[in-house]
Simulated assay, not measured.
Amino acid sequence: MPNFQANAANGAPRDDLSVLTVPAFQDNYLWLIHDGAHAAVVDPGDAAPILAALAEHGLALTAILLTHHHADHIGGVPALLARFPVPVYGPRNDGIAEVTHPLAEGDRVALPELGLELVVFDVPGHTLGHIAYVRSTPGLHWLFCGDTLFAGGCGRLFEGTPEQMAASLEKLADLPEDTEVYCAHEYTLSNLRFAQAVEPGNEALALRMKDESAKRALDLPTVPTSIGLERRTNPFLRYREAEIVGELVKAGKLSDGASPVQAFAALREWKNVF
């Protein structure tokens, strides 16, 4: 049986919403937002584990939320729609045929069955039309960011530019520190190994590597993370830091006097081959 992990979330106006972690494929996480009766799924790349989680927890699917067009995020949509004819929310400009409610920056998604409202951010870079969903209830902040921001890293630039991805990440980094970050992959330890290579003097990063390694040794997920933790330890939010710039120059990845965006691009290119 799949190893579902529940992350309870408490706060007004609903104090009974939770996010269920549904592992899929090699390292994907699919997310079920639920109240014990109704559920919305985020990025269901595979229908089978979602259907199993719905059955196990007695949940009825009421909405599908998509961040971008890659198959490991949308592959399960047709099979889910065959069982549950629900609205499909997704990016306006990312070419997903099943989307019934196209979204862009500033749009709001109201899910009445869950008493939940999410705000949409445009976060291009990984794909050109990538979006993220933010819950901004006072005292309770969630971010569903697909493959834009990862725990300790960021997505590859398959379609967008370094300028776009850097701007998207800065937009997310401006969210409150206690925002829970629900990214879509278990890449954390490999991301943190790279982070330590480019910022070896970061004590918070060393502590995080210890903590996250302990979780993975027990086969526990390292997500959700938080915006505050990412600000302190994620090199793709810290590419302006002198130590990171210095390591890029020392490794021959960057020239002295390069711009911050050039540093970000060099960092991402180094991670691609690290």
Rank of each mutant, 00 (worst) to 15 (best):
residue 24 A to C: 09
residue 154 C to S: 14
residue 167 A to L: 05
residue 206 A to Y: 00
residue 113 E to I: 00
residue 48 A to Q: 12
residue 220 L to C: 10
residue 64 I to D: 11
residue 197 A to G: 04
residue 71 A to Q: 13
residue 235 P to C: 05
residue 79 A to H: 07
residue 93 N to H: 14
residue 75 G to I: 10
residue 43 D to I: 00
residue 81 L to Q: 09
residue 192 L to Q: 11
residue 50 I to L: 14
residue 32 L to V: 10
residue 99 V to H: 03
residue 245 V to N: 06
residue 131 I to N: 07
residue 251 A to W: 03
residue 126 H to N: 14
residue 222 T to W: 02
residue 181 V to W: 03
residue 181 V to R: 01
residue 204 A to I: 00
residue 54 L to F: 11
residue 255 S to E: 15
residue 60 A to C: 01
residue 154 C to M: 14
residue 128 L to P: 00
residue 93 N to I: 00
residue 109 V to Q: 08
residue 42 V to I: 15
residue 3 N to F: 06
residue 68 H to R: 08
residue 58 G to C: 09
residue 146 G to N: 06
residue 242 A to C: 00
residue 90 G to F: 04
residue 38 H to C: 06
residue 134 V to P: 01
residue 133 Y to W: 10
residue 94 D to T: 01
residue 272 N to S: 13
residue 189 L to N: 10
residue 49 P to Q: 12
residue 262 Q to H: 05
residue 9 A to K: 00
residue 25 F to S: 11
residue 247 E to L: 04
residue 14 R to G: 13
residue 161 T to Q: 09
residue 169 L to T: 04
residue 112 P to H: 11
residue 140 L to H: 13
residue 129 G to I: 04
residue 20 L to F: 07
residue 239 Y to E: 09
residue 175 L to K: 08
residue 105 E to H: 11
residue 174 D to C: 08
residue 18 S to Y: 03
residue 64 I to C: 08
residue 134 V to E: 04
residue 32 L to P: 05
residue 129 G to S: 10
residue 180 E to K: 14
residue 245 V to A: 05
residue 41 V to I: 11
residue 19 V to L: 09
residue 6 A to M: 14
